[in-house]
Design a protein around this nucleic acid. Structure first.
Lengths: 352, 352
DNA sequence: GTGAAAGCGCTAACAT
DNA sequence: ATGTTAGCGCTTTCAC
């Protein structure tokens, strides 16, 4: 059932307007040339008469015609869309809310825009990270940036083994097949802990879910700083707190009522740190007098909390740029080595 | 030059792996059936033998084959991608950074995910909002959500007039052709101002760029609250501050040194409010003793600032849901009326 | 129940 | 300098 142009009925569920979408054939007809000429003109080919070309461009412009990118991509086998995947916790079905994650997304968006790529933002169940690969397998995106490793180092390795162009924001691990970009978590953990120890704190609690590689590395730093100071951290002070903020309160409450002494806290995100401060206050302890608290991330508002947060600064803007740069390398077929970006302490009021 | 399957060379610039992407023809060949059968099997058609169908599905799964969505969309004339446009200021080339915007993006992402849509996040020059329509004209997305009206009410109207399915986060204006969803800015401005007046504040500065519709409406509320209290606001206290945070400091400094008296501030975003507090402190004024400050947005961290921020709460989670719901209505070809969501004051320390 | 073939909107040989 | 035609990977009549 061949159709002449403009014959088609305006069916098509997802089409809102009653007007059929303009296509190249229409421009061609109106300009009195063939579609090939229109195609050439719009792509700036020199093979077409300058005036004709100009006329066609004008016409297209005035009709708000844009080349159908789906068709173009299909024909050209190209695609300029990058998938950015933000895993969510299946149980809590939590919203994207950590300001740090949100900032990173912003910085990736900027970096991709700079390089002329589109960004497809996608949330997937962190238990089924392989869903991310479907974005790639289906040709929807040419590569994927995943925010955070979560508990799924091995899933990520599998994706990489399958040649999915993949860059992950997170820590650099041994036996890692995928490219990761992240802050220097071990060093961050060490700096923060060393700062607390230098300030005379003796018993420092570590708050974070060490099942996450980034947190694990930070805890290694926490250990190392203790070792440097010829101290041994008390395992009772290593507290597994999920990233959900409300969890902090419970953990702190329990720690306080358990009678285990502590005078410092290293929290694995600023959000956690803030809730820790709240929880401590509710328990009648003052920050930083009774307990010093160090956060992690240096989110934009860390300088404006009460008290202002001493924290480990993560390079968010660079992060976006580096993640994108690494992905572009992979897309060029080159190897992209893992990158560990330097971090530094920002000393404010919560742990002077 | 007809090609038999698997003959094609692995050229294709944007392809990273050396392995050609799997396609339906490959599955068909491996399963010993035709592509038509594979297509039917994978789409769950009952027209195909149950065993065959199962075998094909298994095969596809085990090879990580996913239907090429570009081709499928082209053939089916469908598309499940929605564009979310975050305008940026051309001059300042500013990054997405306002926590409120970021939260809204998160909430839209969640809402779209819930409805099975993908989200294409796109930054465009706020002077050229029509660039947003290109997303639509090119078929890349089936509809667009724009965050903020900025100074471009008329550009938005033009887009809507061109039948671009469009929903805008922002204020409801007279003569508006597009669908907007936003907080009740007039009421928000009025509540905030009334709160300050009730607390005995006499000279309340208004900080915000009234060229933006949302800010304009808030200022109307500011006026109305004064009128209710049979007062007249001093025009010298209406200060045009762009949303860039650093601007706040200058404006406050100038206001202080100008000798114009004031004892209250309504800032048009929490970020602005925070910087206002800082600037006031630098000028030796105490918040809220000398000056009460009310923010706007109730961003997630407003409760943790120093001092904790009294502010107007915007319903972020609902916002995403409503924006998406409105867009889906438009896509069904129905009219989507503008929505104004209720807002409410959250009283904290900065303006008790 | 399955296959052959046409065509979604576009580009790029290959013709003139 | 322009037109004709084949085909990107898929779905769907239409035939068997």
């Amino acid at each position: 059932m061949p159709k002449t142009s403009l014959t088609k009925a305006p069916t098509l569920g997802s089409d809102s307007s009653d007007r059929r979408r303009l296509q190249m054939a229409d421009i061609a007809r109106l300009a009195g040339v063939s579609v090939a000429t229109v195609s050439r003109a719009l792509s700036g080919s020199t093979l077409v008469n300058a005036e004709t070309s100009e006329r066609i461009k004008q016409l297209a412009q005035s009709l708000n015609y844009s080349i159908n990118l789906g068709a173009q991509n299909l024909r050209l086998q190209k695609n300029l869309t990058v998938g950015v995947v933000v895993p969510y916790d299946a149980q809590s079905r939590q919203h994207i809310s950590d300001p740090f994650f949100l900032s990173i997304i912003g910085s990736i968006a900027d970096a991709l825009t700079d390089h002329g790529y589109d960004m497809l933002l996608s949330r997937v169940d962190s238990e089924r990270l392989d869903a991310a690969s479907q974005l790639f397998d289906s040709g929807k995106v040419i590569g994927v940036i995943i925010i955070g490793q979560w508990r799924h180092h091995d899933q990520l390795n599998q994706l990489a083994a399958r040649n999915v162009p993949l860059v992950v924001w997170g820590g650099e691990l041994p036996q890692q097949l995928y490219c990761s970009v992240g802050g220097d978590n071990r060093d961050g953990g060490e700096q923060a802990t060393a700062h607390l120890l230098r300030a005379g704190r003796k018993r420092i609690a570590f708050l974070g879910d060490a099942a996450l590689p980034e947190v694990w590395l930070r805890r290694e730093g926490y250990w190392r700083a203790h070792a440097q100071a010829t101290q041994t951290p008390d395992p009772q002070l290593e507290l597994a707190v999920p990233f959900e903020p409300d969890a902090a309160r419970q953990v702190i409450d329990r720690l306080c009522s358990s009678g285990v002494a502590f005078d410092g806290v290293l929290a694995c995100s600023d959000l956690l740190a803030i809730h820790t401060v709240q929880a401590l206050r509710a328990q009648g302890r003052t920050v930083p007098v009774d307990v010093s608290v160090v956060g992690y991330d240096d989110m934009p508002l860390a300088a404006f909390c009460e008290p202002t947060l001493t924290t480990v600064h993560q390079p968010v803007v660079e992060a976006g740029a580096e993640l994108v740069a690494a992905l572009l390398l992979l897309l060029k077929g080159e190897r992209a080595p893992a990158r560990t970006l330097p971090v530094h302490m920002v000393v404010r009021a919560s742990a002077p």
